[in-house]
Simulated scan of single mutants.
Amino acid sequence: MVTRVKDVMGAVAIAVHREATFTELVATMRRFKVSAVAVIDADGRPVGVVSEDDLLLKGTGASYGETLLEGRGRHHEREKTTGPTAREIMSSPALTVTAETSAREAARLMNDHRIEQLPVVDPASGEIAGTVHQADLLRVLDRRASDILVDVATAIARLRLDTRTLAITVDDGVVRVGGRLARRSQIAQLTEAGRRIEGVVDLEVDATYDHDDQPETWPLRV
């Protein structure tokens, strides 16, 4: 079973409008205990994101390594009631997912872009429908190596591969398969099947093969 964003997402859509002030941004982050908020237009569609880093770059008074809600940021928040709005501060466009996005894909997006939450949008209207957090995804993706190993072995059996000729290891969600396969094309089949398994961050196949059924195609010279 593939876990999707809808299975773990929060029902609350954490967002502000484009005219939200600095003070409102900080209040929203503090209320929901998040480090970023989505910025939506009048129709409720995400158009950008404001993070603590975005605010720090605008000169909030916090020093490097301090979060917006600590240290000098607290003092500056009390003093600053006007100033740049979310429209001026936000990073755009907003990175979003839908409820049907797989948990693994959402986790990859967060990892690649170094963010901790994503707006979830309705695919038909584009309106924000909720928020999925990194912690939500980790609860379902953080599986025991032994459980992942069982699922990988099952996937190999479904492909009718000989497990006796393969060595499989799991380390922090990374699956490595070595040994010998009958055909070269089985490498791609195994990689595709393995990466669909919950908890598998990546799958690496380093196996030899008896028959090359994917010969190189050389371009014709004219």
Rank of each mutant, 00 (worst) to 15 (best):
T163R: 15
N111Y: 08
V170W: 06
L109P: 01
I168K: 06
A107S: 15
D147K: 10
T131K: 02
L138W: 09
D112E: 15
M110L: 08
A94Q: 08
V150A: 14
T154N: 11
V170M: 09
A99N: 03
T165F: 05
L161H: 04
Q134A: 08
A107V: 01
E100V: 06
V120H: 03
P123L: 08
L118T: 00
T96P: 03
I128E: 04
A129T: 05
A106T: 06
D162M: 08
L118N: 05
E100P: 05
S91W: 06
A106F: 05
R143A: 04
H133F: 13
A135E: 14
D151V: 07
R158M: 05
S92E: 09
G126S: 02
L159F: 09
S91K: 10
T169Y: 13
V132F: 01
E127H: 02
R143M: 14
I128W: 02
R144G: 15
E116R: 15
N111E: 14
R143L: 15
L109E: 05
V132A: 05
V121Y: 01
T131D: 03
L166E: 11
R108I: 06
A153D: 10
V152A: 08
D151G: 03
E127Y: 02
T131W: 01
V140P: 09
L109R: 05
T163H: 12
R108P: 01
D147T: 13
R139H: 12
D147N: 04
S102P: 04
T169N: 14
L109T: 00
R158Y: 03
R114A: 10
A145M: 08
V150L: 14
D112I: 11
A129D: 02
V152P: 09
R160T: 10
T98V: 09
Q134C: 01
A124Y: 10
A157W: 02
D147W: 12
V152C: 07
V150R: 14
Q117L: 14
L141Q: 00
R139T: 13
R139V: 15
A103P: 05
S146C: 03
E100I: 07
D122S: 01
Q134W: 08
I148D: 07
V132L: 02
E116T: 15
P93F: 03
L161D: 04
G126A: 06
A157T: 12
R104N: 06
V121D: 00
H113G: 00
A107H: 13
I128P: 04
A94P: 12
A94K: 04
S146W: 03
R144W: 09
I148W: 11
T96Q: 04
R143E: 13
I115M: 10
A103M: 06
G130N: 03
A153Y: 07
R114W: 07
